[in-house]
């Protein structure tokens, strides 16, 4: 894995805030995943069926195929959980961030907040083009280019022995 040297020059408060941001996003993912795992009647079906926008056909097709729904349910339950664990623990963090961005990308594309789209599930705020999914995507992207997993996280042990020693 490519190692950047940015981390050398973080100030204490920069490290703290970046790690806190990582853990908060991780918490969000993990709790979303765990509640789905714990609720046997949870399904992505309704969400998929309610898709709008240019990819709506694809998402709705998946909704009408029970096998696809089962697979998507499984991938969401475990994807959210594992990404959450990865972010909080700083374990395989870059893969987790990448996975998180992909999942959020799907959520964003299936329910884009465009003018004139109305969804069955009312959102708790008002959005135009930019919604929380999009912001979380870019927050993850920031974490990707300002990594902290080798400062606080299990990745310290997994990657770059040399770097750890030199601290």
């Amino acid at each position: 894995m490519q190692q950047s040297n940015v981390s050398y020059s973080y100030s204490g408060s920069q490290v703290t805030l970046l790690v806190v941001l990582r853990i908060l996003i991780g918490w969000h993912f993990l709790y979303e995943g765990v509640t789905k795992l714990l609720n046997p009647s949870w399904s992505s079906l309704g969400y998929l069926a309610d898709s709008k926008g240019i990819f709506a056909d694809m998402f709705q097709n998946w909704a009408s195929n029970p096998n696809a729904v089962r697979t998507i349910d499984f991938m969401n339950e475990w994807g959210l959980t594992l990404v959450g664990l990865g972010l909080i623990m700083g374990c395989l963090t870059r893969i987790s961030i990448f996975g998180g961005i992909v999942m959020l990308g799907f959520y964003y594309l299936s329910h884009p907040p465009m003018v004139g789209y109305k969804y069955a599930l009312p959102s708790e705020g008002s959005y135009l083009w930019v919604n929380k999914n999009l912001i979380e995507i870019f927050a993850l992207a920031v974490l990707y280019v300002f990594p902290t997993h080798q400062i606080v996280g299990i990745d310290r042990l997994i990657f770059s022995k040399k770097y750890n020693k030199s601290i």
Binding site: N39, S43, A49, P66, V69, A120, L121, P122
Partner: peptide
Amino acid sequence: TSATAKYFAGRGLLYTYRQG
């Protein structure tokens, strides 16, 4: 159940295709 599920079910969006 979650508010989401209730909302979808109320609109008849849920479970229509569950068994295919």
